[in-house]
Structure formats: C-alpha cells, structure tokens
Design a binder for these strands. Structure first.
Length: 206
DNA sequence: CTACCGATTGACT
DNA sequence: GTCAATCGGTAGA
C-alpha cells in the first residue's frame, strides 16, 4: 500500500539536496483507470535566477509561473510537443524546481504499457517525456499540490531496504548554457536511467 | 500577427 | 553517431 505524501518541508530546502533526496522516493499517479507509479531514479535541479538554464531565470511568464508558487507543487511544461514534470522547491517567489527525469516502473505496469504503447518496461518512464506519457501527466497538473496525496504525489518508499543506493552526480542533460555545476543525480547502475550514465571523469577504454 | 527556439524522442546512417 | 518531427511559449514588428 502506498505511504502518505511528502510534506511541504521536504521541498523547502536547497534544491540540489532535494533533487538528491528524491532518488528512491515513490512517484504515484491515480486516475479512474487505476493506480500506477514507481521509484524515482533520476532528477535534475534548476536554480531560479542564479541558473541561466532555469526557465524562470529571466522572470515570470505565463508558462513558468508555477515555479514562483509555493514548494511542493508541480511545474509541468511542454518541450517539442511532449510534457515534462517538475517539483517546485524553495520558498514562494524563488523559482526553483526539480525535473523528474526517470522512474523505475513498479506498480500499474499494464496501465503504463497501454499509455506508452510498448511492453518494454525499461522504456516506460526512462526520460522526462516518456515518464509523463506513462503516468498521463499533462498541463492540467501544472500547479498541482503534490503534498495532498491524491491524483499525483510523491512519498517514501514503503519497500525500502534501508540500504542507500549509490548516487552519481553529473552535468544536466540537454543543457548547453556555459556553467559546470553538477545538478543531475541518478541511481548508479539502474537500467531505468535515461541518457549517458558514464560518470564524469571516467574514460572509455581504448 | 510572424519568426524562432527548445530541460525530447524515435528513426535512421 | 545524426537528424527532424511538430507545437506551445516567447519575443518582437
């Protein structure tokens, strides 16, 4: 059975810490069709005005206004006609958010397989837009309060073994702005993580 | 109104 | 590895 949603205070911390701590948490989605979700294995932090890659770095627009709202709410935006889901962090007025890039699908697999039109579990939610398609997340969830614990929420892992997974830190995917902060976090060796999983600094053998 | 762009993905060489 | 589909958001005339 799912545990209750993480509270507001979880999101009211340094965004990089929130991004890292979201790894291992459960993302849940409930619709009339049923419950589904999985374990968060990849997330990236976007740091308000001090981060040129953040959508809100140059002020509020209609698109990014959810990021200026209270922490613990969703910021959902479209890129290349696909949806991406974020959890807003920091106090109201400071537009930071965590992009949830991938989950390990665990519950409601059949539902997610229908939505994604594939049976390959590894492909259900590996990448931010695939994740949204698998969970039926779209613009109607922009601004949704993730702490309420229905429709769309994040909670502790009820099956946690207590053993912390090894976490890798890297540059964010698709971010071209010239700054080197390592704000992407993912679970080492998880097959459900998107993009390159090579750790920065390691070299391919030749 | 028009023009340009992108925190992506899937198809392809 | 490369490439473009396809469209809402945004800036600017």
């Amino acid at each position: 059975m799912e545990s209750s949603a993480l509270g507001r205070e979880f999101y009211l911390r340094d965004p990089a810490v929130v991004a890292r701590d979201l790894l291992g948490k459960r993302l849940w989605r409930e619709t009339a069709a049923g419950l589904c979700g999985g374990r968060i294995v990849e997330a990236e932090a976007y740091l308000s005005a001090r981060d040129p890659a953040c959508h809100a770095s140059r002020g509020m627009t209609r698109r990014n206004s959810a990021m200026f709202g209270p922490p613990g709410h969703a910021y959902v935006y479209m890129i290349h006609h696909r949806w991406c889901f974020n959890a807003v962090t920091e106090p109201q007025g400071v537009p930071s958010a965590i992009l949830i890039r991938a989950i390990e699908p665990l519950d409601g697999l059949e539902l997610m397989q229908q939505r994604r039109r594939t049976d390959i579990v590894r492909d259900l939610a590996r990448g931010p837009a695939r994740l949204c398609e698998a969970l039926a997340i779209d613009r109607t969830h922009n601004g949704w309060d993730l702490t309420v614990g229905r429709e769309l929420w994040i909670a502790d892992d009820p099956q946690s073994s207590g053993v912390l997974p090894r976490i890798v830190r890297s540059a964010r995917i698709g971010v071209t702005s010239a700054h080197r902060r390592l704000l992407r976090f993912y679970v080492a060796n998880s097959p459900y993580v998107s993009g390159r999983t090579r750790q920065l600094g390691s070299r391919p053998r030749r």
